[in-house]
Design a protein around this nucleic acid. Structure first.
Lengths: 152, 152
DNA sequence: GGTGAAAAATTGACACC
DNA sequence: GGTGTCAATTTTTCACC
């Protein structure tokens, strides 16, 4: 899809604050509120903006434990299989196929270590998983929303 | 902070759609719009809701390459040092200290492989980094916003 | 792309429990 | 502490140019 510098700035402003009003955004990009809305509607319908979400402090909702788990899979495992399998587990908040020794990297979030262990066991029970390697998150140092290159 | 089931449901609804109106949310949790707003204001001021953001398709804004990099650091490296160092690099969209062989895991997003390589070189140049192990993301299978346990 | 008007949402004041 | 109702203001969302 075609996007100009104004679209990029609107996106950056919405990433910074998804509840900013169109008038507020318009003031910063020198556009009227309706013009901003039309652009945002277009960005949404073309899939550039996938949605709007609240950023939550995980510990506040009872998720205190995170881990990254490398999956080593059997030879014939497809990304689709991994997708289906990982989506089944509510603890999975991210999953990626990767280059390197592992086949996939899975990001888990659980209530506590016990819950994490349980989720990990379930994941390891998937038929295509041959082995795993876990990294439990000790502290989140950086966690930024999708950064947008600012075209100044 | 103290949170009841209604707060949890409001949070879940805002994670699903940060631009939902208070009246719309109120209809789903059986509360008036002002009551919802008061709760949201409280959740924001207490840091449970850290903010609202737009979810962007990374490829649409020119970020086509992602990687996870394990950092192996010198013995006396502190999390604070890693935080400061990783925040300097705009390509870092996540950083965590982890248990296991590596000391930290860094999530990078770059325009292309060349850009990623460049960012990786800069990261490896940090004085406390002894070695790295990279996993380039081949495909994003799952990428969910902070999942909230639904108290049904 | 802007303007203007109607509809809807936000926000604060107030009473109530 | 919490809620709902009401009114003023602001925002959204249409027309139409």
């Amino acid at each position: 899809m075609q996007m100009d510098a104004v679209d990029q700035r609107i996106i950056a402003l919405l990433v910074a604050d998804a509840r900013a009003s169109y008038a507020e955004i318009g003031a910063k990009v020198s556009l009227s509120a309706p013009a901003v809305k039309r652009r945002v509607d277009r960005l949404r319908s073309t899939g550039v903006i996938k949605g709007f979400t609240a950023v939550i402090e995980p510990s506040a909702v009872g998720w205190t434990t995170e881990a990254f788990v490398e999956l080593f899979c059997t030879g014939r495992t497809t990304p689709a299989q991994i997708t289906v399998a990982t989506r089944r587990h509510p603890e999975v908040i991210g999953a990626y196929t990767v280059s390197g020794q592992a086949d996939a990297l899975v990001h888990l979030r659980a209530a506590d270590i016990g819950h994490l262990e349980q989720a990990l066991e379930r994941l390891r029970a998937e038929p295509f998983v041959t082995s795993t390697r876990s990294m439990v998150v000790l502290s989140r140092l950086v966690e930024a929303p999708t950064a947008i290159p600012l075209s100044s």
